[in-house]
Design a protein around this nucleic acid. Structure first.
Length: 724
DNA sequence: AGCACGCCGACT
DNA sequence: GTCGGCGTGCTC
């Protein structure tokens, strides 16, 4: 009897065992199967087959119902899912859920396939030739069976041809062909000698087709994208698939145009904004092995590529790659794992690489390619620090831009050049305070302040999204008209700038302002010189190329430094460096002004001196000294419950029962810095392990021996990035 | 995820 | 007395 161990895309730790009926024994592992589960039927993956004489089990074994007409999940992908599950301490079934499209989409299989005939290695037999001739005349057929019928041969011939790699099929849906065959004779970019050398190395790696990780470390504006697109072209020319990960998809029409110019086709996009039918199409295409390029957010890492040839992680240092709900994983790190399992090269691109990546370069695990010149003779901007302790006073009350910055803006406007003001804070004011009793208006469901959004005339919680009207009287002391807005957000900054420069064309961008289209229009306006001043949050810090931008003002450089996060300095440096890099990308040299209350801080000093390497070295030394990642491994345990008391008890019990293990240190329990979010109280415990100690067995042991009270949920975050 | 089983409040 | 709330636990 053949047993089928089937994995279901649900929160399940293990596979379920079924009998594989004689009609289905040929199904390979990885096949999609339909199985009875409880009172209903479910789609799952034949994870493992097992031959067994007879089986005595405590449960009754049901039979696999049918196999589905979907190609089996590649073995490498299954291994990736299993690896990720054990590393992140997530039920495998949950990981599988990220791999599979929605159940209902699976059932709607593509009706028609586009068949492609590849040059055969050896001469074809007459029967096989018939099939290839037919495909050449008419490439659209529903299934292998139908194709065989049309050609007057048995379906086995078609399958044999598929297996031999002579024939391949790609799903065609809704009559829309989507991404066609890439045209590699498109216009290759004109590269500088430095870019060219880097591109050559990357292309060589693609050619070798072995696992390796390369950091593409290029200053802002050095044309990293053009360089890695050459490697992408190389992979495509070999008939392979490419995955390009971006931290968040803010791909402008210009960005897509650049891609289309190079390859003659649009990339396949994969992110939360892509509709279900496009996703289904992409998912099937990728599984069918059709050469294509997917540009996606972190979830694209779970697509079932069957011919992967290259992975690119752009803006490698971005924290948006860390997912902190559902399955807790870091897409950059998991991309390394996937590339290793797929045995393909991986490119990490950044102008401000993460400490983790730089350490891996120094250890020789990753190689590094540097791009030191800005493209087309542009030079890096000068960076000037403004000490707010000195200049604040002259600004007067409720002024967020100090005199030197006002002067710089005035001059820049007079010169007809563009300016950008960066403030990483949405809304009008981060705090509403009662002048009478000192009450700070906070969220009913979270331990956080409500942020005023004046354009929407509301107070909003940035933790849970709760919105309420701005109260007339203080909610605490009921004093009327005593509430005042404290501190600036981009909206308020916009107010000040328009008051200061009434004639200037001023635009503002924040993730909560207007529609996607509106924001894209604003970006285009800026790119094409229809704006004088653009104000924005970190949405404008990355990736954009504003040819006419000469001045960048950082309104509050200290924002990211508070909070005691292990990576606060690194993140602040990266963010400010990235914004600075927006200006001076053409002939006119750029100028950056940074307002700070702590201009002596190493981050500010490093920025103004333009000494990234010294900053990185100091940061790495500090991490080593304090035995922090990447020189140690962290695992965070987050306890949460609507009941304040039971969370604390659970967290304390957990630490109390955890075994003392050499090389592993437990910190906490302590209430989370944001003690309550969405009506749930949170406590945290942090485990730190020496690199020499395996932390997973320890964590598993802890989890097994501490039964959670049902009211309390526990999240485990391996390699945490957020400490809130 | 569903869908069962199971123990406490407002209806005919 | 019953209907039904959704809390907890199982599905090969």
């Amino acid at each position: 009897m053949t047993l089928a161990h089937v994995l279901l895309p649900q929160r399940l730790e293990k596979t379920y065992t079924y009998f594989l009926p004689p009609t289905l024994v040929h199904l390979p592992e990885g096949s999609f199967v339909r199985v009875p589960f409880g009172s209903r039927e479910k789609v799952g993956i034949l994870w493992r087959k097992e031959e067994s004489a007879k089986e005595e089990t405590s449960f009754k074994i049901k039979e696999v119902l049918v196999g589905m007409d979907v190609p089996a999940l590649p073995e490498k992908l299954r291994r990736f899912a299993a690896w990720l599950a054990q590393y992140t301490l997530t039920p495998v079934g949950l990981v599988l859920k990220m791999v599979l499209p929605k159940d209902e989409h699976l059932e709607l299989l593509p009706e028609t396939f586009l068949w492609t005939c590849h040059p055969p290695l050896k001469p074809l037999t007459p029967t096989r030739q018939k099939v290839c001739d037919l495909v050449a005349r008419d490439p659209y057929h529903t299934s292998a069976h139908a194709l065989g019928m049309c050609a007057g041969v048995s379906p086995q011939v078609v399958s044999a041809l598929e297996k031999a790699g002579v024939l391949s099929k790609a799903p065609v849906l809704d009559g829309d062909e989507g991404q066609g065959e890439p045209d590699l004779k498109g216009t290759p970019a004109v590269l500088s000698p430095e870019q060219n050398a880097a591109a050559k190395t990357l292309c060589h790696q693609v050619e070798e087709n072995a696992f390796c990780v390369t950091l593409l470390d290029g200053v802002t504006g050095s044309g990293k994208t053009q360089v890695y697109l050459e490697a992408v072209a190389k992979a495509l020319s070999k008939g392979r698939q490419v995955l390009i990960l971006l931290p968040e998809i803010s791909l402008t029409p210009q960005g897509i145009a650049r891609f289309e110019n190079r390859f003659g086709v649009s990339p396949l996009l994969w992110h939360s904004g892509v509709g279900p039918s496009a996703k289904r199409k992409t998912w099937h295409r990728v599984l069918s092995g059709n050469p294509c390029v997917v540009i996606g957010a972190r979830s694209a890492l779970f697509l079932p590529f069957s011919q992967l040839g290259l992975i690119v992680v752009d803006e490698e240092h971005e924290h948006a790659y860390k997912q902190e709900q559902g399955v807790f994983y870091h897409a950059r790190d998991m991309a390394v794992v996937r590339a290793r399992l797929e045995r393909v090269p991986l490119i990490l691109a950044s102008a401000t690489p993460s400490v983790e990546t730089v350490v891996n370069v120094t250890l020789g695990k990753y190689t590094c390619l540097k791009l030191t010149e800005r493209f087309a003779k542009a030079v890096l901007p000068t960076i000037e620090l403004v000490d707010l302790r000195v200049h604040k006073k002259t600004g007067g009350p409720r002024r967020w831009i100090c005199d030197p910055m006002v002067q710089a803006l005035t001059q820049n406007l007079a010169a007809g050049a563009q300016s950008l003001l960066f403030l990483n804070r949405r809304g009008y004011a981060p705090l509403t305070l009662c002048r009478s009793c000192g009450e700070r208006v906070s969220c009913a469901y979270c331990s956080s302040w409500l942020v005023e959004h004046r354009s929407l005339d509301i107070l909003m919680c940035h933790q849970c999204g709760h919105k309420q009207k701005r109260p007339q009287a203080c909610p605490s002391c009921e004093a009327p008209d005593a509430l005042v807005a404290c501190g600036p957000g981009v909206e308020r900054l916009h107010e000040e700038v328009t008051a200061l420069f009434p004639k200037a064309r001023v635009g503002m961008i924040a993730s909560d302002q207007g529609s996607v289209q509106l924001r894209q229009d604003l970006l285009s306006d800026m790119e094409e010189g229809r704006l004088d001043i653009l104000i924005g949050t970190q949405m404008i810090a990355k990736g954009h190329h504003f040819p006419g931008l000469v001045f960048v003002g950082v309104v509050d450089a200290d924002l990211g430094l508070c909070g005691g996060d292990l990576r606060a300095c690194e993140r602040t440096y990266q963010l400010l460096h990235q914004v600075s890099g927006r200006c001076g990308r053409e002939e006119v040299p750029g100028h950056v002004m940074i307002q700070s209350f702590a201009p002596d801080h190493p981050v500010m000093q490093a920025l103004s001196a333009g000494d990234r390497d010294a900053f990185m070295t100091a940061e790495i030394d500090a991490r080593r000294l304090y035995e922090m990642p990447p020189f140690a491994r962290l695992v965070a345990f987050i306890f949460s419950s609507t009941d304040e008391k039971s969370v604390e008890e659970a967290a304390r019990a957990f630490v109390h029962r955890a075994p003392r293990t050499p090389g592993i240190m437990l910190m906490g329990p302590s209430p989370a810095p944001l003690a309550k979010v969405n009506r749930r109280w949170r406590w945290r415990v942090l485990a730190k392990a020496d690199k020499t100690v395996k932390i997973h067995p320890f964590v598993q042991h802890c989890l097994r021996q501490t039964p959670m009270p049902s009211k309390v949920t526990l999240h485990v975050d391996v390699d945490p990035y957020s400490f809130l």
